[in-house]
């Protein structure tokens, strides 16, 4: 799963200076955030299809979504070599960004795949 986040390769200026002066490159930070957003959307769609095919209902499906998002976060963190601060300005970005926007796509594709496989 971490493989998808390879687009986050755009390096920000090294965060060594973080001890005193924050040195950010705003554009690179934005590119990194975009990479997070894309990988989250992609994974929520894929996760929705998987959840639908496996036939999860009600709470199980939402737990599955949280699981997928947690795996995404871990994948993103692993991709950044466990040094978040050289790519992003805070942990919240990695863990929470794009969480709610992914939910809608997840529900749609979950419903779609579930109906295809289980209802008819």
């Amino acid at each position: 799963m971490a493989g998808h986040s390879e687009s986050s390769g755009a390096e920000k200026k090294s965060g060594e200076a973080a001890n005193e002066i924050p040195t950010f490159n705003a554009e690179n930070l934005q590119t990194n955030m975009k990479a997070i957003y894309y990988s989250r959307t992609f994974l929520s769609i894929v996760g929705g299809v998987i959840a639908g095919i496996l036939g999860f209902t009600s709470l199980t499906g939402f737990i599955f979504y949280f699981l997928v998002m947690a795996i995404t976060s871990v994948g993103l963190i692993a991709k950044s070599g466990f040094s978040i601060h050289s790519y992003f300005d805070s942990w919240n970005r990695v863990i929470f960004d794009g969480f709610l926007s992914g939910l809608m796509s997840f529900v749609l594709f979950w419903t779609f795949a579930y109906d295809m496989v289980h209802i008819f």
Binding site: Y37, Y38, T41, F42, S44, I45, S101, G102, M104, S105, V107, L108, F109, T111
Partner: peptide, 13 residues
């Protein structure tokens, strides 16, 4: 309507 809102993520991809 569900499609209208849920496909936004797909479109951005």
């Amino acid at each position: 309507f569900l499609n209208l809102f849920g496909l936004r993520g797909l479109f951005s991809l």
